[in-house]
Computed example of a mutant assay.
Amino acid sequence: MTGRPDAVVFDVVETLFGLQPVADTLTGFALDESTLPMSFTRMLRDAFALGCTGGYRPFAEVFDASLMVVAPALDDAQRRTVLSAFGSLTVHPDVRPAFERLRSARIRIATLTNGSATNTERLLERHGLAELVEMTISVDEVKVWKPRPEPYRHALVRLGLPADRVAMVAVHAWDVHGARAAGLLTGWASRLERVHAAVFDPPDVQGADLVEVIDALLAR
């Protein structure tokens, strides 16, 4: 594809919103700082394994199961408190300017999350971003996690656009790889992983943050 996309779809957790409130909740229960990255990585691994074998469980259920293994000292009520912290995620400072650049260019904005659409909508509203986003899309609608192709294809259906007119933007190389395999234009921001894993297809554009990625997409 050449030229600007007609729509940009953003990943949500870690791309738009940071996990510090979840980390703070875990350390508040006297758990080590490594608990969150270990739990989150295990959650992704288990969800991907389910997807490879035809299974599916929603975000909250898979993360809760991960906590049971990584932090067995937490009781049911404490794990519910940790899960509730996902409703208080902080917004990254590059999100609003990236969204506003797209709005000024009359390019549609959507989100595609492995979490729930309801939580995404609440976070967007909480941080004053809801009016900039046309639609929130969740893997719950297709019952399989990214980076399987079904969620990206479902986003195209929701948007009513072909793959070559839509860009997927994320801070996770695996997410960008999945979108590219599904035929979408892709943008990767390096502020989380720093180095793009060599085993994945490279993104069409990349930058240090979302603003640089969007500027690169607009310059096509």
Rank of each mutant, 00 (worst) to 15 (best):
R103A: 10
R103Y: 14
S104N: 02
S104E: 11
A105P: 13
R106L: 15
R106D: 15
R106I: 08
I107Q: 02
I107M: 08
I107Y: 03
R108I: 04
I109D: 04
I109Q: 02
A110N: 03
A110H: 03
A110P: 02
A110T: 04
A110L: 10
A110C: 09
T111E: 05
T111L: 03
T111R: 05
L112W: 06
T113R: 07
T113H: 04
N114R: 00
N114V: 11
G115L: 00
S116Q: 08
S116C: 11
S116G: 10
S116E: 12
S116I: 14
A117V: 12
A117N: 13
A117K: 14
A117F: 10
T118A: 11
T118C: 05
T118L: 14
T118G: 03
N119L: 12
N119C: 11
N119A: 14
E121W: 08
E121G: 02
E121H: 05
E121S: 06
R122E: 13
R122V: 05
L123V: 06
L123E: 01
L124A: 02
L124Q: 01
L124Y: 01
L124V: 07
L124P: 04
R126H: 08
R126Y: 06
R126L: 12
R126D: 06
R126G: 06
G128S: 07
G128H: 02
G128Y: 00
L129I: 07
L129S: 04
L129A: 05
A130W: 00
A130C: 03
E131D: 15
L132H: 08
L132F: 04
L132R: 06
V133G: 00
E134Y: 09
E134W: 09
E134G: 11
M135Q: 14
M135G: 00
M135A: 09
I137S: 01
V139E: 02
V139A: 09
V139K: 02
D140C: 08
E141Y: 07
E141H: 12
E141A: 11
V142P: 00
V142M: 04
V142T: 06
K143S: 15
K143Q: 15
K143N: 15
